[in-house]
Design a protein around this nucleic acid. Sequence first.
DNA 1: ACCCGGCGTCCCGCTGACCGGTACGGTGAT
DNA 2: ATCACCGTACCGGTCAGCGGGACGCCGGGT
Lengths: 256, 256
Amino acid sequence: MPHEPADLDTVLGKAVTILRAFTVDDQVLSLAELVRRTGLPKATVHRVAGDLVTNRLLDRTNLGYRLSGGLFELGMRASVERSLLELAMPFLQDLYERTHETVHLGVREGHDVVYVAKIGGHRQAKSPSRPGGRMPVHCTAIGKVLLAFSDPEVQQEVLSSPLERRTPHTIVAPGLLERQLAAALEHGVAFEREESAAGLQCVAAPVLAEGGDRALAAISITGPVGRFRPEAHVTLVRAAAQGLTSLASRRRSLSS
Amino acid sequence: MPHEPADLDTVLGKAVTILRAFTVDDQVLSLAELVRRTGLPKATVHRVAGDLVTNRLLDRTNLGYRLSGGLFELGMRASVERSLLELAMPFLQDLYERTHETVHLGVREGHDVVYVAKIGGHRQAKSPSRPGGRMPVHCTAIGKVLLAFSDPEVQQEVLSSPLERRTPHTIVAPGLLERQLAAALEHGVAFEREESAAGLQCVAAPVLAEGGDRALAAISITGPVGRFRPEAHVTLVRAAAQGLTSLASRRRSLSS
DNA sequence: ACCCGGCGTCCCGCTGACCGGTACGGTGAT
DNA sequence: ATCACCGTACCGGTCAGCGGGACGCCGGGT
């Protein structure tokens, strides 16, 4: 259940509906555009958006509304991603410094992976991912490894739902995908070869929870097909992920 | 005007009041604790918090409520800090790699600086700053340089308000502070010597807006008193900040 | 055993905050 | 001029939200 449409019969529901109408690419939306996207009556959007502005969740510009800095502050206090980020930064840092390729940290949320951090230099491979952004689990290395180290039920849940094809190389056959998940579970790494975006390859390793069979998060290294061979970095990602795993086990940051 | 108390006579006001009751250190709050902090009636908090949970802005654990991952996603879409972060990462990255000291990116919001990013390694100097966190402008290098490159009115506004003393070295004399701001404006860098936390020093340089007289953000390098000399890194921060300045001028991400 | 303080949950009748159809003024394209 | 589309403002009906209060649960002090 990715998007429960939120309860539109309550102020709060309308408010978050409006907030969620903003995507990563659309930074600023006009009132009319908000009306279009949310399906709410114009007068309502006008009023609620106004309230959101006075409550500092939205900014008003001459071009329209946009998500405010206050919302950024709030989001950065979100406990799980916050502690994760804090613990992980040094490891991600190391990885970047040794490879100079793009490094990701992500968690699973439903059928998607949500990127918590992304580190890249000036010449980084141009990937569609963004911190706070989402990608389908089945077409990314991080997603696969997260799925491999999930409860079998959710794994089945994902595998049995229709798999979106992002590129010609995206794996949509559940059988093949299932075999890759098994391999990922066995070796503690997953790969991706141009399955989410053309010209990109990835390796990913899991950050494990206490028991060692469930993943809290995953780390990946991404590079362009030419210079970058995922196999060459297996030990590196795995080491980083394991380091983070042992560090995380010493902290409380889980729960349902 | 740091904290307009939000309108408590509206659902939305109550909701954000509850959300803002969470601080960086208090990741999970019980119902009772929320009641205490917000001053709202217990029944109200119970209901609104419940609504926030169904709207995926809060998580419910057996220990209490906490800010959810959905809020993190939302916050990462906030336009200004988002584009800033995206553009700045490579520069921050470079700075870290060359110095292996803690690197910050921050913006000003009222009398505080809000940290947008923080990069540090395993052995980083332990500073009180956190991404999404706040510090008073007058006791940090970033804050000073941001203030120096602000409208004179806001500068006066800050200088004429009581300045909190964080450490014995915190500058609370408006006169001295004013002189430092003038120097920062002239040289394009500001310093801090154990003014926000014991044992830490900083250099910061401004990322300038189109006109070149107002700062959008600032970059800083932080290190421990022993091995770290701020003066040694002046050219480095300044170069990074200028690089980012020219990059930012080619993008639309300002406005009031 | 007993009580007591603090917790989370639930109930329920009153009321004013929210709703959204409707109308108005401005602006740019045709 | 005309039109389409925008943002803004009004306003009366009604129902969602309100919060005092009561309840059951737990743990710790006596």
